[in-house]
Design a protein around this nucleic acid. Structure first.
Length: 489
RNA sequence: GGGCCGUUAGCUCAGUUUGGUAGAGCACCUGACUUUUAAUCAGGGCGUCGUGGGUUCGAGUCCCACACGGCCUACCA
């Protein structure tokens, strides 16, 4: 027994053969429409002549009236209605329309007019089959809804759902705007290795791979930091990289194992300069992409315009959970205080990770308006420079918007002796199999040549896109999010 | 990793309470129609009910296991 799908596919294959029998190539090599659909519509609306124009796109709907057929086609710019008339096309061409289905891609020439109902429409004088589609598209009212299919078959999601198209158009515009912003300020974009002998620059579990040519196990990078700082040593005073980082950790609505990270470093700067950079960049990007620095999420109006609120981390934690981390100088005492508060605490966590837990549990959910948390405990941040006047703290901030961490930045540690000591301290204080910063000799040696005072910044691009497109799942802003392999049926 | 919910036609969904021949809309096929636009009208056929076991005279429906997905939770950005 044949399924519906098999019937439809075989009907379309028969149609394909009939097209070939007429001497027509159903898969021609190219077609050059004179306008994108949106341009053609704009032309017509301005009252300019729109005759002998050509358009191309996928057929999304078809309404046959007998001797007249309406069809909607869409290209990446927009949608337009085509009108095929028997007396204009002639019998042979009009009958060829029998072989054209929803989902096929066509080119059409003719002139634009406005129908009685007021819709701008191309009256087709000639058309060309550009690609025969063999499978039926998802349903026209609801589109493709099933999340599993939407992520696995993103092409169908993009064909069917305008919202999805808009999100990824926005994503592209956001990244372009970031590049424009940084380029205009004299930053140089670079590319550094994804495959690394040590996974440094953050504390996270890396993916491992084997480098055949070197007969060595390698890691996929978990951050961009160390190589970029080596470029600062090399004299690139303003550098950035937008690239994929990989962390072999949980998958959730806010985490994809491979994610896009922006890191930028500016010599002769400190973390206060990076705060200004973040504020200005975020509001520039929002203005460019949304035309506004105010965004609405979950009914909250969030204003990205500078200045963002600045709160000392110590004060924020005191404020939201009444713990002053300066009263607890080691992991043991802080852990018992947290347990006293009824928290279940992983005994493998060091003091830095414990403070991090206080932030994410008590503070982060409350930071809806853009907020910088400032000055972190030194053991949380082995790559950051100690705070002027308080050696237990480092000059670091994280930027939060809508209860989500967006940015992380510090005054970069450029004292090679302290840097070496801080790596050692990480290893010393490591408890169990806790992930900590790995000492990277190439990086340490570079620092010994001298790195100018430098401000550094990391921004999770996927999360920024979530924010600017109003999405609550990271999978909605990544074209092909990580999913388990489906078993073969 | 843990908890809850879900998986039925190419797509969107009913049907599961109370076991008794598998349903609708879109899409598709045939016919009518030269201003439709969720076109309309008449007719048509199409299913490994996620997978594998079990209970039963009989399972889409009840039970067990597994797979995949969603949300929450845990680690992290």
């Amino acid at each position: 027994m044949r399924s519906r799908l098999e019937r439809i596919t075989s009907q379309r294959l028969e149609s394909l053969n009939r097209i070939r029998e007429k001497g027509i190539d159903p898969y021609p090599h190219c077609y050059h429409p004179s306008y994108a659909i949106k341009e053609a519509v704009a032309l017509f609306e301005r009252g300019e002549k729109a005759e002998n124009i050509s358009l191309a796109g996928r057929i999304m709907a078809r309404r046959s009236m007998g001797k007249m057929i309406f069809a909607d086609i869409r290209d990446s710019s927009g949608k337009i209605q085509l009108c095929f008339r028997y007396n204009l096309l002639g019998e042979e061409n009009f009958e060829l329309l029998d072989e054209i289905d929803i989902g096929d891609i066509v080119g059409a020439e003719g002139k634009l007019f406005r129908t009685k109902a007021g819709e701008i429409t191309l009256e087709v004088s000639h058309f060309t089959i550009l690609c025969k589609s063999l499978r039926p598209l998802p349903e026209k009212w609801h589109g493709l809804v099933d999340t599993d299919k939407r992520y696995r078959q993103r092409h169908l999601d993009l064909i069917s759902n305008e919202e999805t198209r808009n999100i990824f158009m926005s994503r592209s515009k956001i990244i372009t705007a970031i590049r424009n912003f940084l380029d205009s300020r004299g930053f140089v974009e670079v590319e550094t290795p994804v495959l690394q002998p040590e996974a440094g620059g953050a504390a996270a579990t890396p993916f491992t791979t084997h480098y055949q040519a070197l007969d060595n196990d390698f890691y996929l990078r978990i951050a961009l930091e160390l190589h970029l700082k080596r470029l600062i040593v090399g004299g690139f005073d303003k550098v950035y990289e937008i690239g994929r980082a990989f962390r072999n950790e949980g998958i959730s609505g806010k985490h994809n194992p491979e994610f896009t990270l922006l890191e930028c470093y500016q010599a002769y700067s400190d973390y206060t300069n990076m705060m200004s950079l973040v504020e200005e960049m975020a509001s520039y990007v929002a203005q460019e992409v949304l035309g506004n620095t105010k965004i609405t999420i979950n009914g909250n109006i969030i204003n990205l315009a500078p200045p963002w609120q600045r709160v000392y981390l110590r004060d924020a934690i005191k404020n939201y959970c009444d713990i002053d981390f300066e009263d607890y100088p080691d992991a043991t005492s802080l852990r018992s205080k947290m347990e006293e508060k009824g928290m279940e605490v992983d005994p493998n966590k060091g003091r830095g990770k414990l403070v991090d837990e206080l932030i994410s549990t008590f503070v982060e959910p409350n930071l809806i308006q853009p907020t910088f948390l400032i000055d972190y405990p030194a053991e949380m941040s082995p790559l950051a420079k100690r705070k002027r006047g308080n050696e237990h703290l480092v000059e670091r901030f994280e930027g939060f918007i809508n209860g989500m961490e967006i940015a992380n930045a510090f005054t970069e540690l450029n004292d090679p002796i302290d840097q070496r000591e801080r790596f050692k301290q990480q290893m010393r204080e490591r408890v169990g199999d806790e992930e900590v910063e790995i000492a990277d000799e190439d990086f340490l040696e570079a620092l010994e040549y001298g790195m100018p005072p430098t401000g550094g910044l990391g921004i999770g691009i996927d999360r920024l896109v979530m924010l600017l497109t109003g999405q609550s799942s990271i999978r909605e802003v990544i074209l092909f999010p990580q999913l388990r392999t489906k078993p073969k049926s």
